[in-house]
Every structure is written in structure tokens, then in C-alpha cells.
């Protein structure tokens, strides 16, 4: 009981700190890529900037536009943020540091993180704003489309290990990370592309394309509700990177350093790669994005599933 409460509270603390760190890192990375300095005034290298932002958002007026759908307007921040907190139940930080090693862990993470799309659509529908509605619809269409190749590539890892438990998957990679095997390397590539689309990041950020939809589904949100969308966004980035680390990069396994250090190093490595992509690539068009998901990625993932199944059973 005490263990559960301690695990839960430390996960919550980690989510808050990690989201703040990632917001700072994103601003710094974008600045370095664009050859400028980024936040410099608050603290060393602007390290306190996210704290200042949080205080500012706490003190901001909460504006609700006319004609909102009150229920979905209020529930949307919950539906977006709560699933990303719940996903932490079974993220293996090290061999001992996992709140609970569920025997359906991988399926649980995949299903609980896809609840987010409900919140995003509720935000889009509830805001009584054309930009928000468009952003919410696009986001829903995009997330469900990329869910299919994502799950198909995850299936290959399940076939390889024969377990859904996150710790079991990490232990199966003892000695050789899954990314070193060719069929799983392809699965990793498909997973990474789909995961980028799942968390609405460039090149798949059409739901919140600033230059055409202002901010998409959270255009009308302000103050703490907006902050919740932001926390959820960066927590989801952490979750997809942590799952990528667990499934393909050997999780917490590694020489010399303790497991949790290896896990965080790999996860933040994947996140840095996603940030690098975000500030380098242009945005895809809606029709290109949808046909890429269904015609290229899903087909590739199905072929990969059949071929790697044949290789394993042969």
C-alpha cells in the first residue's frame, strides 16, 4: 500500500519535472537548430523558464468563449492528461523501479494512451471554434490511422518475446537489443514514424499547424487548462519514447551504469531525435499524410508481420 502510494506520487512528480525539462529542452534545441540562443534570462541558460511559464499560466484569466459545449469543454483537459498519467503504471524505469509489472502491460499502455484522442476531439468540439473543430477532426483521423501500423509493429515484438509484460520484454533483450535484428529494426522504424504521428509532432503536426489552424484543438483554451494540454503533450512524447526504448532499445539494460540511468539516457535520446526531426522537416499535407499511413506504412507493417512470423516459425 505504502509502496503503491510512493510509486504513484513519484511518478506524478516525475511527470511534472519531465514536462518542464522537455519544454525547456525543446526551446533550446529549436534555438540551437535555428542558430539563436533561446531562453537565457531566467536562471542558468534559461533553465527556470518553464517555472516562470507555469506561474504565469496559473495567474492567467480563464476565458471560455460563447456557445461552448460546457461538459466536453471541462472534461477535455482531464481526458487528455489523465491517460498519460495512467500509462506510467507499467513503465519499467529499472529492474525494480516499475509501479506494477502488469501481465498485459504493453496492451494496457497502447489502449490507455489512445484514450487521449477522445479528449482532443472533445476539446475541438467543445470550443465552438472552427479552427478547433478542424484541428480536433484532423487529429482524430490522424491518430486512428497511425494507430494501425503502430500496433502492427508492436505485435512483432510480442511474437518475438511471447509476453506482454514490459519487464519480460526487457529481459528478453539481454545481450542483444531488438533493434539489432533486421525485421525488428524495420518494426522500430515503423513504430517511430507512427509514434511521431500519434503525438502530433512535425512532420505530422497538421492538427495544430500554427500557420493555418492557429493552435488547432486548444486554440480557445487559456490558463491552467491550456497548461494541462501542454503537460499531456510532452508526457505523451516521453511515453512513446519510453515504450520505444523498452521494446527495441533494450530498456534499462546496459553496462556499468545503473538501469534507471540507462533507461533515461535512451529515452531522452529518442526524444532528442524527435525534436531534431521537428525542427528540421517541413509539414506534410493532410492527404499525403493519410495515404502514407494506409498505403505505405500499413502495407509495410503487414508484410513485415507475415515475413518475420515465417522467419520465427520456420
Amino acid at each position: 500500500m505504502i509502496q503503491m502510494v510512493a510509486a504513484g506520487l513519484s511518478c506524478l512528480g516525475f511527470i511534472a519535472v519531465s514536462a518542464m525539462f522537455l519544454i525547456w529542452l525543446e526551446r533550446k534545441v529549436s534555438a540551437w537548430i535555428q542558430n539563436r540562443l533561446g531562453p537565457m534570462r531566467t536562471g542558468f541558460q534559461g533553465a527556470l523558464q518553464p517555472v516562470a511559464d507555469t506561474v504565469k499560466l496559473l495567474l492567467k484569466e480563464d476565458i471560455a468563449p460563447q456557445g461552448i459545449d460546457t461538459l466536453s469543454w471541462w472534461l477535455a483537459p482531464f481526458f487528455v492528461t489523465v491517460p498519460s498519467v495512467m500509462a506510467f503504471v507499467t513503465i519499467p524505469f529499472s529492474s525494480r523501479w516499475i509501479p506494477r509489472d502488469l501481465n498485459v502491460g504493453l496492451l494496457y499502455i497502447c489502449s490507455i494512451t489512445s484514450v487521449c484522442v477522445l479528449g482532443i476531439f472533445m476539446a475541438g468540439w467543445g470550443s465552438n471554434n472552427k479552427y478547433s473543430l478542424l484541428g480536433g477532426m484532423r487529429s482524430a483521423a490522424q491518430i486512428i490511422s497511425y494507430e494501425v501500423p503502430l500496433l502492427l509493429s508492436v505485435l512483432i515484438v510480442v511474437m518475438e518475446t511471447g509476453t506482454l509484460s514490459m519487464q519480460g520484454i526487457v529481459q528478453a533483450q539481454h545481450g542483444l537489443w531488438f533493434i539489432a535484428k533486421p525485421h525488428l529494426a524495420l518494426a522500430f522504424l515503423i513504430y517511430l514514424i507512427s509514434a511521431t504521428a500519434e503525438v502530433n509532432r512535425v512532420p505530422f503536426d497538421i492538427p495544430e499547424a500554427e500557420s493555418e489552424l492557429v493552435a488547432g484543438y486548444h486554440t480557445e483554451y487559456s490558463g491552467m487548462k491550456f497548461a494541462m494540454f501542454f503537460v499531456a503533450e510532452y508526457t505523451n512524447v516521453f511515453i512513446v519514447s519510453a515504450v520505444a526504448t523498452t521494446l527495441f532499445l533494450g530498456g534499462w539494460q546496459g553496462p556499468f551504469l545503473p538501469g534507471v540511468v540507462w533507461f533515461l539516457l535512451k529515452t531522452y535520446g529518442v526524444i532528442s531525435f524527435l525534436m531534431w526531426m521537428r525542427w528540421t522537416l517541413p509539414r506534410l499535407r493532410m492527404d499525403q499524410m493519410m495515404s502514407f499511413a494506409w498505403k505505405v506504412l500499413t502495407t509495410l507493417a503487414l508484410v513485415n508481420l507475415l515475413v518475420s512470423g515465417w522467419m520465427m516459425v520456420r
Binding site: L59, K60, T81, V82, S84, V85, M86, L102, M224
Partner: peptide
């Protein structure tokens, strides 16, 4: 564990909204 994390998440968002309700203009 799942129910506890659900309550924790709801508490996290709820408390953030409540705190800002007291502070904001």
C-alpha cells in the same frame, strides 16, 4: 494500481484547476 493512478491523474488536473481558480483574475 490502475484505479489509484486514475485517481492520481484526476487529482493532478483537478488540483491544478482549483489552485488557478483561487489565483486568477
Amino acid at each position: 494500481y490502475i484505479i489509484f493512478f486514475l485517481l492520481l491523474g484526476v487529482g493532478f488536473v483537478g488540483s491544478a484547476l482549483v489552485v488557478s481558480w483561487f489565483l486568477r483574475p
